[in-house]
């Protein structure tokens, strides 16, 4: 019993520590870390099931701990005290295909705030894509049915922004891009 408590406490630690460093952690990685700490070692009958139960409980009891399912089917864990849901969303998308990442981020921004997103932003942390990779993505998107809503607009100083036509119409998007890129700084 005590051992279970200890395992749960360690799981929480591991998740929160990982979030602190701005990353997600999978069940597999948690297990490895627990083992490194001398927990759930071989004498446990089924460490995996044990871990699953413990994780479930940790999720139930601690509102800051969240689970996120990546498109590849792997579940990742994190603490919203240190890592936001938005960021976690970006991280799982990032682990997948960059097309999907760009499209989803663009759609989310177009819908929620609403605002277009500068292409150059994808070169920065946490996206860290190269310009070539981004341009290649945009080229492929142009040809793929699934991404037909992802559109571009260029500001008066030549910066390209992306938006989703599902949520913004072209004039609105170009106005907002201009506002973000030029308007706000020219009207300080």
């Amino acid at each position: 019993m005590e051992r279970q408590e200890e395992v749960r406490a360690n799981i929480l630690n591991i998740i929160r520590d990982r979030s602190e460093s701005g990353r997600l952690i999978s069940a597999e990685e948690i297990l490895t870390e627990l083992k490194r700490r001398g927990l759930l070692t071989s004498e446990e009958i089924k460490p995996k099931t044990h871990l699953e139960t413990a994780l479930k409980q940790a999720l139930q009891e601690n509102r800051d701990v969240k689970e996120i399912l990546a498109p590849n089917g792997v579940c990742y864990y994190y603490s919203v005290r240190r890592l936001s849901e938005t960021y976690a969303g970006i991280l799982v998308l990032k682990s997948e295909n960059p097309l999907w990442l760009i499209a989803e981020v663009v759609r989310e921004n177009s819908k929620r705030y609403p605002r277009p997103v500068p292409v150059a932003g994808f070169m920065e942390s946490p996206f860290d894509l190269t310009l070539e990779a981004i341009l290649e993505c945009l080229r492929v998107m142009g040809e793929d049915k699934e991404y037909q809503d992802i559109a571009q607009t260029i500001t008066s100083v030549g910066k390209t922004f992306l938006y989703s036509s599902r949520h913004l119409d072209p004039d609105y998007a170009s106005m907002l891009a201009e506002w973000l890129d030029v308007g706000q700084a020219d009207n300080p």
């Binding site: 890592l83 936001s84 960021y87 605002r115 500068p118 920065e124 996206f127 890129d181």
Partner: peptide, 21 residues
């Protein structure tokens, strides 16, 4: 102004410019 682990929101037009790097 860009996504950061602690932040739920970000905005390219923000004057909150600090970021790793």
């Amino acid at each position: 102004s860009n996504p950061q682990p602690w932040a739920e929101h970000y905005n390219a037009g923000s004057r909150w410019m600090a970021s790793a790097g």
